[in-house]
Amino acid sequence: MLVHSAGGLFVLWAVATLTFFAVRLIPGDPAQAVLGGPGSQASPEALAAVRAEYGFDQPLLVQYLRELGRLATGDLGRSYALNMDVAPLLLAQLGGTLLLALLALAVAWLLALALATWSTLGGKTAWAVGSGIEITAAALPHFWLATALIILFSTWLGVLPPISTPGPVGLVLPVLTLAVPLAGFLGQIMRESFQAALESPFVLSARARGEGELGIRFVHVLRHAALPAVNLSGWAFGSLISGAVVVETIFARPGLGRTLLNAVTLRDVPVVIGVVLIVALAYILMTLVTDLAGALLDPRGRTA
């Protein structure tokens, strides 16, 4: 646990450092970004005042150390472009993205589980069809899937809103967009391990004892087969966050992904660093949780 925390802190520090210098490499004057972007007619005095206030006139190393000092005390700083502190801004956006990602993860799990169960039960054809569906689903780019879903469910059938509205109905399409490709990945892995587990000695002995096929599947196989998929969920969560950038833009959902895309194009350094840190933190926590879940599920006690 201690090692984990130390490693986590190291990753956070390195992520902040890398982002700080990378964003500084982006061409453009940060003082200009503070004063309403490149098109504004900020006076030289105003620019100088902003440079002094934000410390842009200091050497880069000094700016970096200051930034670290602030971050260490949990202060994410102030957005250049949005006229507000970063921490409350991101806190307000975090909920929406987390909800989206967790729901998508859950739905992907269910879809994958259903498909894997069906395709291992249904013989050779089901196996081939299931495999085909999964590979195709895994290859669907979010931006295309979102478009196709909007055409199908909003424009043609008119049953679901094309933008994210408050309430569960508005979440259906964004969640599906993220869940389907993920289900493709999870489904493949589950099916592989289902098959392996079904052929394992303990299942053979259960069959010999006369247990029903469905019972075997749920009692014995699921536990073993779910393990690799649980291990994968850490990765899955990270890729959902990347996907959120596209999905939140298309479905007009407030969230971290959209904030990030805006902040990057506006050179809003504190917001970019803030989002990256939150995502890194979520990633670290998620990895920790999946490690623990893996350890619980795995009878041998440890998995790679």
Binding site: S154, T155, P161, P162, I163, T249, A252
Partner: peptide, 19 residues
């Protein structure tokens, strides 16, 4: 007053009566 930057989503939202 909503902000929907994607033009296709914006029109789809109008068509379906969301906005």
């Amino acid at each position: 007053w909503k902000f929907i930057p994607d033009s296709a989503s914006r029109y789809a939202a109008l068509q379906s009566g969301q906005v």
